[in-house]
């Protein structure tokens, strides 16, 4: 995944069972964003791998004032890349459970 300047990591151990999982997002390189992020704190949130899309969360983060609306794509892509990695890893480690 290309470096968007926004980092998204698991905020808990993933055992492949739960559909909703805690993620943590923070800005690693503000220069890569179009707008100025509100503050460089880490934002932790729960994401439902089955029901939700990264764009939903990115839009809610913008609504909540964390990011400028011009950064919707970058934030959504950062979340999407991490979610894809989580699903890929689940498929490899717990194929029968998926």
């Amino acid at each position: 995944a290309e470096d968007t300047g926004v980092r998204v990591e698991l905020a808990e151990e993933d055992h492949g069972r739960k559909s909703s999982i805690a993620l943590r997002l923070w800005v690693e390189d503000p220069k890569k964003l179009k707008g100025k992020p509100k503050d460089n704190g880490a934002i932790e949130f729960t994401f439902d791998l089955e029901k939700e899309t990264p764009d939903d969360v990115a839009q809610e983060m913008i609504d909540s004032g964390f990011f400028h609306e011009n950064d919707l794509k970058i934030v959504a892509k950062s979340i999407r890349d991490r979610v894809a990695l989580i699903l890929w890893r689940r498929e490899r480690i717990w194929p029968r459970m998926q």
Binding site: W26, D39, N40, A42, I43, E44, F45, V57, E60, S64
Partner: peptide, 27 residues
Amino acid sequence: SSFTQVVHSAGRRFIVSPVPESRLKDQ
């Protein structure tokens, strides 16, 4: 504590905490 919580109208909670210095690229 240095945690703040923001609840979006759709119900999702965002919990903001300081990023460890070590995780921030050189600005």
